[in-house]
Design a protein around this nucleic acid. Structure first.
Lengths: 244, 244
DNA sequence: CGTCCCCTTGAATGAAGTCAATACGCGTGG
DNA sequence: CCACGCGTATTGACTTCATTCAAGGGGACG
């Protein structure tokens, strides 16, 4: 089940056979299955271990006192939660499953062992941490200065690139198992406006989005609209695209 | 000159005399002085070492191709840039001085040595990394669902708490050496609207802001308006407030 | 068959942006 | 010393993008 995790980390560096075994063993520990909409971590909890998303989608979110909710990050297969989060006293956000989810947990000890045994894995974990930080920064940029059309296009590009990097995009197609309300809570728009914006993208023939499946008919054009530059994802040399 | 860095890390844990010496020595290496508006790191650069902000203010920012600029983070004295950023091939953002700035640089070797020698420092560095990630998440929340008034109030609260934690707030007063254009580029609003919003805060007697000096007359009220909950800053037990 | 969630659409409203003009302080150079 | 330019702050009038409110439709599920 560590297939996606390994593919993900291989965006950073080639892993040895031994590295992969280590990861496989670790990712077989404390595996949980979670139903959609269920929290796997709740704000205020004492941090446990590091979540490793083996299969399915999840999201990080925060809720304001008055009930407004903001999705802060998406986790797709192969992603990991904050490394060493147990250094903090309590979680400052929640994580919920968006689809049926399979998630493992690296304990502090497992993490220490792995990084001690393989510096390459240690580095790959740092890379993962840094890339997540970078994505969060790009979201700040999106929310701060992109228009509705640009924001949504940008999010679609990002998710497509991330999924493609772990082999979860088929040519121009990937899953997008989130509702328009979710999208709104992600890009800081009302679901009504998300709907209208998606219509616009559909009308211009750029995408098809139906039954939780996204088809991008013209990735270049979508990237242009979104002012999307994939370098912030720090993917491999081929940009996580299909090998030639 | 490592005073603020030490105060900052002591928000996380008590440092030994030895720890502090190690930090002081490291922070005396590769010290640079930078003039306001000057870049210390530029997008696309190969990462060098980790920037350590000894004195003055800086900001992280990104620019879109069409020239729009978004400030992504503020650095105040005692803050550090991304740890192990040299794992990435190139910087995905720039960092500029906002005031006359004194900044040191930890090389990879220095960093490794320090964490090897003192696990407590290693943990404090992780804490710093995690707190910065948390701040970035909170900014995502601000931009995603707070109104103009809430956003600006929230930013003022955050900066006040952060400065107070390193001893740079005097009772209800701190520096705020940024223009209204900068503020706009931070909270995703036009400078005109920032101006109007600040007027509103002044008119309700909550703050005074003049000559780059911020006075918060009613912190509780400001926090309430902002829906500000300082827990995301993961400060010490007293919340970084003045010792009793 | 009803209920619930999600998507869609229209019309009215509102928050923030844009454009434009003015004012102020500061440094620079004539 | 004063004129000028420049960056910053302020204010007004108008516009635009996005929200809110409201209603209806479709599919999944009990």
């Amino acid at each position: 089940m560590a297939t996606f995790l390994i593919r993900r980390l291989e965006q950073f560096a080639k892993l040895s056979v031994d590295d992969k075994d280590v990861l496989r063993v670790a990712a077989a520990q404390r595996v949980r299955r979670v139903a959609p909409r269920e929290d796997i971590v709740h704000e205020g909890d004492k941090p446990r271990g590091v979540s490793v998303f083996l299969d399915g989608w999840a999201c990080r979110y925060k809720t304001l006192e008055d009930g407004r909710r903001q999705i802060i990050a998406y986790f797709v297969p192969g992603d990991m939660g904050d490394l060493y989060n147990f250094v903090l006293r309590e979680m400052d956000h929640s994580i919920a499953a968006l689809t049926p989810l399979t998630v493992a947990e690296f304990s502090r000890e497992t993490l220490d062992e792995m990084t001690a045994r393989s510096p390459r894995i240690g580095q790959a974990f740092w890379w993962e941490t840094l890339v997540f930080a970078s994505i969060q920064r790009e979201w700040t940029v999106s929310l701060g200065l992109r228009t509705a059309l640009e924001r949504i296009s940008h999010l679609l590009c990002e998710l497509f690139f991330r999924l493609r990097a772990v082999g979860l995009a088929d040519n121009d197609t990937c899953e997008l198992p989130v509702t328009q309300v979710d999208l709104g809570e992600t890009v800081g728009l009302s679901s009504v406006h998300v709907n209208r914006t998606l219509q616009e993208l559909r009308a211009s023939g750029l995408i098809t989005l139906r039954d939780r499946t996204l088809i991008i008919h013209d990735l270049d054009a979508l990237q242009t609209i979104a002012l999307f530059n994939p370098s912030y994802l720090h993917l491999g040399p081929q940009g996580g695209g299909p090998a030639l």
